[in-house]
Structure formats: structure tokens, C-alpha cells
Nucleic acid binder design. Structure first.
Lengths: 206, 206
DNA sequence: ACTTTTGGTGAACATGTGTGCACTGATATC
DNA sequence: GATATCAGTGCACACATGTTCACCAAAAGT
């Protein structure tokens, strides 16, 4: 019996709605779940949904924010672990693996709705991922071997890494249960290693 | 007034259903379109749908086949153009660009449903893309610089290329209308160039 | 010339949908 | 302690959905 103010309770059912949606989105698309389903899953009556969101799409937008937050947490974790280990690639893939396993829902949501999403949700993910790649590009520019690279090339490399990373994420999620994790992370390291090796011979012309 | 046998007419409405579905899938997901919509778009009554497919999912499976066929056509085209030009990367990206513009529906369908798809459709795309990557790996193995590579590494590289390629494809489709094509293809070439450069320094251990 | 096959029709069903509305009871404000 | 706010309820409506069934006319098979 928590006392809990009215605001707290509101935030809590709001969160319940987000969680309910993510649960339903395990094997469906946002566009294919109904407001009524989400409400029922969250334990409220359909019309009460409108006390929190104007539409399912608005809920989706908030899920994008929430999911991007865990994606950024992952990067922070990776940066922290980086200092310990020597091998940047190995430690990055390790934290990726850990974070994916801890937040499968968020990653799955982002990857699914990235292309399947409707209007605003998809647009939100696109801009967020663009921003995310920009941040990664800045990070990359701090490595000695990349100090001479121009912004465009760094951005290109960041895009490539993000794309490869998202591919690995979905492989991990699909393999959830089967213990293919060590194999998948091994391949992920190889991919990154191949990309990084290209840096040595890079010339920016053409 | 074509005479046209009964089989021909059947094949024709079957194709009409596939086309109608692809048209609706321009901005939606297979799971979010209804049988009735597809039937109406194809110009038949809902119940007639069942004369051709047992379910929307079955239609989806056939769309996977159809789409993969144009994907393979693209590879054949690329192989043909390769002999003319010297630069394999440039000519490959050029044919990619052309084929995407000529078959946006198919590519968009594959990329969308790859992750958003329901059960069998998604599984079909996954296995087809796996097969596709295997074929590419064999192709790669024919290049002099890659002759010494083992199968696993070739496969890893093929996966990376396919992933990067699909990313480019979706960028192209999203940019349809705006004339960002030259910029997108330029970035695509850069990405591939970076990957290829890594080959020089590759060692398979670890 | 007949019978069978078959792609397409239209009415009907039970069920699920988004959303408007009046209401309620606990919390917040005064 | 009276009053206002507001998250959540229950009913209602008009509509869309998947699927069934009997039916039809034209083509195919005999």
C-alpha cells in the first residue's frame, strides 16, 4: 500500500503502458497492435489510454526516446570498459552483447520500427540514429590513426559501424535462447576488425 | 478482348493481387494491411482472395520469391557490367542504383519485412538473404586478393557487404524524389572502398 | 450436348476496432 | 471541511475485419 501522489501514479501507469506496448511488440509491429490491446495489457480500460497519450503513435515516439536512452547508456558503458581493456573492439562488442541481453525490447523496437514504422515514429528513429552516428564519428576522430580524417569520412565510417552493429544486435536478439552468442560476437569482432584494418590504407580522394 | 484461357486469367489476377499488395505496402507493413484492402485494390471481392491464397501470409511468401528474383537479377546485371568497367565497386554501385530505382517496391518490401515480418515471411527472407550472402561469398573468393581466404572469413565479408548494401538501398528509397542519388552512391562507394581496403591487412587468426 | 470445374459474387455472421460521452471516487487545492 | 481536479470506468456507436455459405456464368472436359 504505497501512498504515492497522483502524479506518481500517473507516471506509473504511463510506464505500464509503455511496458505493455513493448511486450506486445515482441512479435508484432506498432502499426499492427491496437490501442485496446495495449490498454488491456497495461491493465486499464481502453478509454483511459487517452489520459496519457493522444494516439498509439505518440506512445511510439516516447518508446523511441526510452530506447535511445538505453542505446546511449550502452555507449557510455562501452567508453567506461574501454579504459580497462586494451582491445577496443573486443570490449565494445562485449558491452554491446551485455546491453542487448539486458534490454532486448528496446533494441528490437528500434530496429523493427526503423524501417517498418509509420510516419513520425520512423522519422524520429531516423533522426535519432543520425545523431547517434554523428556522436560516434566524433568519438572516432579521437583515435590517433583517425586524427587526420575529415568529418565526412569519419561520418561514413561511423555509419558503416552503426549499420554493422545494428545487424549484430538483431542477430543476437533472434538467437536469444539458442546459445550462439559466442559465435555471433566473434563474427561481430571480425567485421569490426576488417573495417578498422581499412583505415591504414585509406586515402580520402575520389 | 483477349480470349485468354482460364489459367492465364487466374495467373493475371494472382499477379494483380501481388501488385496490389506491393502498392499498399509502400507505406505500411504486411501485418497492418487487411485482406479486404488488398482484394479491393486488386479489383476483386474479398472472398475471391481465397481462390488464390490461403492467407495474406502466403501472398507474402510469394512476394519474397518475386522480390528475391529481382535481387538476383541485380547481381547478374552487376556481373555483366563488371566486365566492361575496370572499377568493380563503381560499376556495382551503379547497377545497384539502377535496379533499386527500377524496382523500389521489391527492395522496400524485403527490407521492411526482413525484421518487421510475421513468422513465415520473416523466416523466408532470412533464409533467402543467407543464401544470397553465401553466393556473394563464392563470388568474392574468385578475386585474386581473396583467393587465400577461408570460407568463414569470406562469408563474414559477404555479410558485411550485404548489410552495407541494404543500408544503401533503403537510403536510396527514402531519398526517392529528392535528388540525393549522386551523394548516396558516392557514400556507398566509400563504404565499400573502406571494407575492401581492409583486405590487404587481414590475418584470419583470433 | 452434357456435365464438371472453377474464378468470382454478395449476403451474412461474430468479433474487434477507435472514439465520444456521462459518470465516479479518490486526491489536491483552497 | 467544502470544492475542484482528474485518472479511470462503462456504455454506446458506427464501422472494418476474417471467414462461411449458397450461388452464378463461363470455360474445360467428356
Amino acid at each position: 500500500m504505497e501512498p504515492s501522489s497522483r502524479q506518481e501514479r500517473k507516471q506509473r501507469t504511463r510506464q505500464a503502458l509503455r511496458d505493455a506496448a513493448l511486450r506486445l511488440l515482441t512479435d508484432r509491429t506498432l502499426a499492427s497492435v491496437s490501442l485496446r490491446e495495449v490498454a488491456k495489457e497495461a491493465g486499464i480500460v481502453p478509454t483511459a489510454f487517452y489520459r496519457h497519450f493522444a494516439s498509439l503513435e505518440d506512445l511510439g515516439i516516447e518508446l523511441v526516446d526510452e530506447s535511445m536512452r538505453t542505446l546511449r547508456e550502452m555507449v557510455r558503458d562501452a567508453r567506461r570498459n574501454r579504459s580497462d581493456h586494451e582491445d577496443v573492439i573486443a570490449s565494445s562488442v562485449a558491452t554491446l552483447h551485455a546491453q542487448v541481453r539486458a534490454n532486448e525490447d528496446h533494441f528490437r523496437f528500434l530496429i523493427r520500427e526503423r524501417y517498418a514504422g509509420t510516419g513520425r515514429v520512423r522519422a524520429a528513429i531516423a533522426t535519432e540514429l543520425r545523431l547517434f552516428a554523428s556522436e560516434l564519428a566524433v568519438d572516432l576522430g579521437r583515435f590517433d590513426e583517425l586524427r587526420s580524417w575529415n568529418a565526412e569520412d569519419l561520418r561514413m565510417m561511423a555509419d558503416l559501424i552503426v549499420t554493422a552493429m545494428l545487424g549484430t544486435v538483431m542477430e543476437l536478439i533472434d538467437a536469444s535462447g539458442r546459445d550462439a552468442d559466442t559465435e555471433i560476437t566473434r563474427q561481430a569482432r571480425k567485421r569490426l576488425r576488417l573495417i578498422v584494418l581499412g583505415v591504414a590504407g585509406w586515402r580520402s580522394d575520389v
